[in-house]
């Protein structure tokens, strides 16, 4: 393991622990308002959209097909991995057909 990777992982571990323990700790000092709650709850979905938007904007037909397949299978099955694999399969298929 390179020192850089170790430092990155330890920083991430500190971040996730601070979030897990921080709310319990903070409750001793500040009330969590409805506004704060709504803001915190919305972050994960916004981050996922942020990762996907450039992929969707820059990607070609293969990536578009992959996104549609992933979303459709996820909605139908409720299974993360099944949806992701369907997306990968669609991308591989369109690339093979286009090649």
């Amino acid at each position: 393991m390179t020192p850089d990777v170790l430092v990155a992982i330890i920083g991430m571990a500190a971040a996730s622990y601070a979030c897990r323990a921080g709310g319990f700790w903070l409750m001793g000092f500040v009330p969590i308002t409805r506004r704060v709650r709504a803001g915190l709850e919305a972050i994960p979905i916004a981050v996922m959209a942020a990762i996907l938007a450039p992929v969707a904007a820059r990607g070609g037909p293969a990536e578009a097909a992959g996104l549609v397949a992933a979303l459709a299978v996820m909605r139908a099955t409720g299974n993360d991995l099944a949806g992701a694999l369907a997306g990968v399969a669609a991308v591989a298929l369109v690339r093979t057909l286009a090649a």
């Binding site: 996922m48 996907l52 992929v55 990536e63 992959g66 996104l67 997306g87 991308v91």
Partner: peptide
Amino acid sequence: ALGLDFLLPAFCATIAIA
């Protein structure tokens, strides 16, 4: 060729649905 580079965006899409 296997489309595995797309696994990460695909996972992000399914996480967003979840």
